[in-house]
């Protein structure tokens, strides 16, 4: 009987698909005991020495000056002055593509790099040259010197409140968002910590020492690049909400379909029988 076979085939198919999935998972996921992820991260060149101020000025005038002014002293209600903010701030905003601002929003969106690394550094060098005050420099972050456990500790105390303990980010008040840290590299992490972009608090070197920053960057890299999802699909790392939906709609859903296969429906008493 055809009808009998279809559900069986479906269930068997699901099983086989599931096991194939497990193999796939297994292939893509390194066993935890192998080399600790995050250790072999290459981070961008930090050297400003080879950057060109003149090249930076051209880029600045083309892309930034319309809002921040040719002198980079800002425009009230439109753009903040950039004088004296320091290389770390400029580098963070430009290299994440949050600047130049694409559209007016409470919180700029991340964009893929519009400038090459060297172009970004040109802009940084040019803007930094405009003011004698030295803001925070681009931090030198070396994850190899970091300590994972120390980083985890600092992250839970200072970062998890907004960025979530798994680093996936979440919505804050009034249309602001703590972004996911998945795209962050150690330099960006360092810059964000030191300059407090947007609503993020600033953590200076007394609060998070350079050594602690190494640890923090190492842990964040570990957490976001290679989270140890020993238990299977991570379900977005957003915690019990996603798990609840999976339990309700996948788990109970499948089991209800099986119940529907096992059982029958009761004939309607009010239908006239077709017997003669």
């Amino acid at each position: 009987m055809k009808k009998a076979i279809i559900p069986i085939l479906i269930v068997v198919g699901v099983v086989l698909f599931g096991s194939a999935g497990a193999f796939a998972f297994n292939v893509t996921q390194l066993p935890p005991s192998q080399s600790t992820p995050g250790e072999s991260f290459t981070y961008p060149s930090l050297s400003l020495s080879s950057s060109s101020i003149t090249q930076g000025k051209v880029l600045f005038d083309e892309n930034c000056a319309s809002c921040h002014g040719v002198e980079a002293n800002g425009a009230t209600g439109l753009a903040p002055p950039l004088l004296g903010v320091g290389p770390a701030t400029i580098d963070f905003w430009v290299s994440t593509g949050r600047m130049p601002l694409e559209q007016s929003a409470i919180q700029p969106n991340v964009h893929p790099d519009r400038f090459t690394r060297s172009q970004t550094l040109d802009i940084v060098k040019y803007v930094s040259s405009l003011d004698a005050r030295a803001g925070p420099p681009i931090p030198v972050v070396n994850t190899k010197r970091g300590n994972l456990a120390q980083g985890a500790n600092i992250f839970a105390l200072n970062c998890a409140g907004c960025h979530v303990i798994t680093g996936v980010g979440d919505a804050l008040a009034d249309s602001t968002f703590a972004p996911s840290l998945a795209l962050a590299n150690p330099t960006l992490i360092g810059e964000a910590v030191r300059t407090g972009p947007g609503n993020m608090p600033i953590f200076d070197t007394t609060q998070i020492t350079p050594a602690q920053l190494n640890s923090l960057a190492r842990y964040v890299t570990y957490l976001t690049k290679r989270p140890q999802d020993a238990g299977g699909a991570g379900l977005g790392h957003v915690g019990p909400v996603a798990e609840g939906f999976v339990a309700l709609f996948f788990g109970v859903g499948i089991l209800m379909l099986v119940a529907y296969w096992i059982g029958d429906r009761t004939p309607d008493p009010r239908i006239e029988e077709h017997n003669e």
Binding site: G18, Q228, D229, A230, G231, G232, F250
Partner: peptide, 12 residues
Amino acid sequence: MGALFQINPIWL
């Protein structure tokens, strides 16, 4: 589900 979907990864 226990094999394929991670639930409550408390180590993280």
